[in-house]
Computed example of a mutant assay.
Amino acid sequence: MENRIGLAPTSRADSSQADEFLRWARAADRTAPLPAEAAAAIARLEQAFRPTTKTTGNPAGLLVDFDSIIGLESQPLKTVKAGATVTATVTIRTVRLSDDGRARGIIDGSGGWAIFTTSSLAQHRLGTILTSKGRITVRGTVTMVGKVPTIDVWAARAVNV
């Protein structure tokens, strides 16, 4: 049996909850409170699809140190020009490996978060350091992926906190 939403209920209880929700949705007066069973089912769905990775601050607002003509400066990543070499102490939130040996992920630090990438050679060398929830200092080159500044990491070291 399939309901009008297109989901096959997994049990008789799920079927009756779906039917009750559909009756409520079809009712002319939608000011009536949502049935308790339907509200509980919606709460379970919201919990299942809630993001698990939390980032702080602004996208590409990560404060990075970069070598400039006047010495070492600290600025948000989004203001640093592509091609500049930057250094940042960060926590790795996520890391995903691709089929060709490259890696990409999200790093979080003071001021915000940023996306990082690595080449397959760098990933081979740094794979043991670039792990989720690891606290590291990364060094790399600012690149643009579309309009999003990213850090192409080619060196990293673990930070003992």
Rank of each mutant, 00 (worst) to 15 (best):
T55L: 08
S110P: 15
S98D: 14
L34W: 03
T79P: 04
L72D: 07
E20K: 05
S110L: 06
R93D: 10
D19G: 09
G6I: 11
N58F: 02
G109E: 06
S11D: 12
D152E: 10
V95C: 03
A38S: 08
I92T: 09
G127D: 12
A25V: 11
T117G: 11
D14P: 09
T131G: 03
L77Q: 03
R104I: 03
W24T: 05
A88S: 09
A28K: 14
R93V: 11
D29R: 12
N3M: 03
A39E: 09
T137E: 08
R104S: 12
A84K: 13
L7S: 15
N3I: 01
K54Q: 13
T87E: 06
A38Y: 00
T87L: 02
R4I: 15
I136R: 02
L121T: 15
T117V: 10
V145R: 10
E46V: 08
G83P: 09
S119L: 00
A155P: 06
T131K: 14
F116L: 04
V148R: 07
D29N: 14
V159G: 09
A27K: 07
I70V: 13
R135Y: 09
T87C: 03
L45A: 13
G105E: 00
A18R: 06
F49Q: 10
T141R: 11
R104V: 07
I129R: 01
D108W: 00
T56V: 07
R23L: 05
I92H: 04
T85E: 07
L126F: 03
K147R: 14
T141I: 06
G146W: 00
A39N: 02
V161Y: 06
F49P: 10
R4N: 15
T131R: 14
I107F: 01
R93I: 09
V86D: 01
E20S: 06
E20H: 01
I5A: 15
K147F: 05
